[in-house]
Lab assay of single mutants.
Amino acid sequence: KRYRAVYDYSAADEDEVSFQDGDTIVNVQQIDDGWMYGTVERTGDTGMLPANYVEAI
C-alpha cells in the first residue's frame, strides 16, 4: 500500500521515521490503531510512523 504524508513528522524515537508533508510512504503495514510501518520513498528511511499523519493514495 502507498500513503501520502499530510503533515510533517519528526521521529521521536530511533525506530520511527521522519517525513514531510507530501512525501510518499511505501510498503506500509498497519501495526495497531495508531501506528504503521513503512518506507519514506524520498529518503529511503524505514520505520514506524503515526497513522493519523498519512492518507491512502
Score class of each variant (00 low, 15 high):
Lys1Phe: 10
Lys1Ile: 13
Lys1Ser: 11
Arg2Asp: 06
Arg2Ile: 12
Arg2Met: 10
Arg2Leu: 10
Tyr3Val: 06
Tyr3Glu: 00
Arg4Pro: 00
Arg4Asn: 04
Arg4Thr: 07
Arg4Ser: 05
Arg4Leu: 07
Ala5His: 00
Ala5Phe: 03
Val6Phe: 08
Val6Leu: 15
Val6Tyr: 06
Tyr7Ser: 13
Asp8Gly: 12
Tyr9Met: 02
Tyr9Gln: 02
Tyr9His: 06
Ser10Pro: 06
Ser10Arg: 11
Ser10Glu: 14
Ala11Val: 02
Ala12Tyr: 09
Ala12Val: 12
Ala12Gln: 15
Asp13Asn: 15
Asp13Phe: 12
Asp13Ala: 14
Asp13His: 15
Glu14Val: 13
Glu14Ile: 12
Asp15Pro: 06
Asp15Trp: 14
Glu16His: 12
Glu16Val: 06
Glu16Trp: 07
Val17Ile: 10
Val17Gly: 01
Ser18Asp: 06
Ser18Trp: 03
Ser18Cys: 05
Ser18Asn: 07
Phe19His: 00
Phe19Ser: 02
Phe19Gly: 00
Phe19Pro: 01
Phe19Val: 05
Gln20Met: 13
Asp21Trp: 15
Asp21Tyr: 15
Asp21Val: 15
Gly22Pro: 02
Gly22Arg: 04
Gly22Met: 04
Gly22Leu: 03
Gly22Val: 03
Asp23Gln: 01
Thr24Ser: 09
Thr24Val: 15
Ile25Phe: 11
Ile25Ala: 00
Ile25Gln: 00
Val26Gly: 06
Val26Gln: 06
Val26His: 07
Val26Glu: 05
Asn27Ser: 08
Val28Gly: 07
Val28His: 05
Val28Ala: 10
Val28Leu: 07
Val28Ser: 05
Gln29Glu: 11
Gln29Trp: 14
Gln29Val: 15
Gln30Tyr: 14
Gln30Asn: 11
Gln30Gly: 08
Gln30Pro: 10
Asp32Glu: 10
Asp32Thr: 14
Asp33Met: 09
Gly34Met: 15
Gly34His: 15
Gly34Glu: 15
Gly34Val: 14
Trp35Pro: 03
Trp35Ala: 02
Trp35Asp: 02
Trp35Ser: 03
Trp35Gly: 03
Met36Trp: 11
Met36Asp: 01
Met36Gly: 02
Tyr37Thr: 08
Tyr37Gly: 02
Tyr37Asn: 05
Tyr37Trp: 14
Tyr37Asp: 03
Gly38Ser: 00
Thr39Tyr: 05
Thr39Arg: 07
Thr39Gln: 09
Thr39Ser: 05
Thr39Leu: 06
Val40Met: 02
Glu41Asn: 04
Glu41Ile: 08
Glu41Phe: 08
Arg42Pro: 04
Arg42Gly: 05
Arg42Ile: 05
Arg42Asp: 04
Thr43Leu: 02
Thr43Ile: 02
Thr43Ser: 07
Thr43Tyr: 02
Gly44Pro: 01
Gly44Gln: 07
Asp45Gln: 14
Asp45His: 12
Asp45Ser: 10
Thr46Arg: 12
Thr46Glu: 08
Thr46His: 09
Gly47Ala: 02
Met48Val: 09
Met48Asn: 08
Met48Phe: 14
Leu49Glu: 01
Leu49Gly: 01
Pro50Arg: 11
Pro50Glu: 00
Pro50Ala: 05
Asn52Glu: 12
Tyr53Pro: 01
Tyr53Phe: 11
Val54Lys: 01
Val54Thr: 04
Val54Gly: 01
Val54Phe: 07
Glu55Tyr: 09
Glu55Trp: 07
Ala56Gln: 12
Ala56Val: 13
Ile57Phe: 10
Ile57Met: 11
Ile57Lys: 06
